[in-house]
Design a binder for these strands. Structure first.
Lengths: 120, 120
DNA sequence: AAAACCTTGACACAACCTTGGTAAGGTTGG
DNA sequence: CCAACCTTACCAAGGTTGTGTCAAGGTTTT
């Protein structure tokens, strides 16, 4: 037999049929369809469903998280924007008192912020 | 003046003070503290707060999404696992009927799946 | 020392996410 | 042709997110 229908796939993967549909709507795993519209899960999809389970369990992720990762992997624009934001993370060196660091950063960035509006 | 307190920061960034605390708990932006424990937002934090707003608005993200991206950027293990899962995405070539493709994939992966348990 | 801040913690609530169920109807196999 | 499956579309309960507000108490400023 070639591919499993949704309930069979559910049984071998540990997901419920309901969740298989949900996962599909999230864009994570989209099985092919029979002529009549039945979902058909091939070996590859089944494997991905199993590894998806492990991934979520081992790293405490949600389907939404993986969906977001997928979105980033497809939308380079998004990925770039997110990474740019993360890259700007201020890493304050250890052993420097917060207040001192603050003044240091202050001076370092004073010029850049010259135009920033200081609303009351 | 060096750094802004939470309400001042809220006003210049467009967030509410409440959200600033929430963002901090999410690990996204953690301001330094005064001796008495007051949050102190320096220019860098203020800038990040503003760009965070843009990021969310322009790409329809949630704070949780950015939090997850941050987590991935810090935990290479996690990042690797997610990317590995995404990389295995089955990209079926266009112009090939689903059923044919299915049989093709079937044979292609038969060996790999030899050991997969086929629960009833 | 009083006004005007800040802190954490709690209660609240709408909107959404995750899951399950159920109903009305098409498909398939014996 | 009938039982056993599949499909979509809804309703719903319980958890999470995003946000406000209020209380009890410390801090800063005048």
């Amino acid at each position: 037999m070639a591919a499993l229908t949704i309930n069979e796939a559910a049984e071998t993967t540990g997901w419920s049929a309901r969740m298989l549909r949900y996962i599909e709507r999230e864009g994570l795993i989209e099985p092919s369809r029979s002529a009549a519209g039945y979902r058909l899960y091939g070996p590859e999809e089944l494997q991905r469903l199993r590894t998806l389970r492990e991934l979520l369990a081992e790293h405490e992720l949600s389907l939404g998280d993986v969906g977001f990762a997928l979105r980033m992997s497809r939308d380079g624009d998004l990925r770039g924007a997110v990474e740019a934001w993360l890259a700007a993370e201020p890493k304050r060196p250890e052993g420097v008192a917060a207040s001192d660091w603050l003044r240091f950063e202050q001076q370092k960035h004073e010029r850049l912020l010259a135009g920033a509006s200081k609303a009351a």
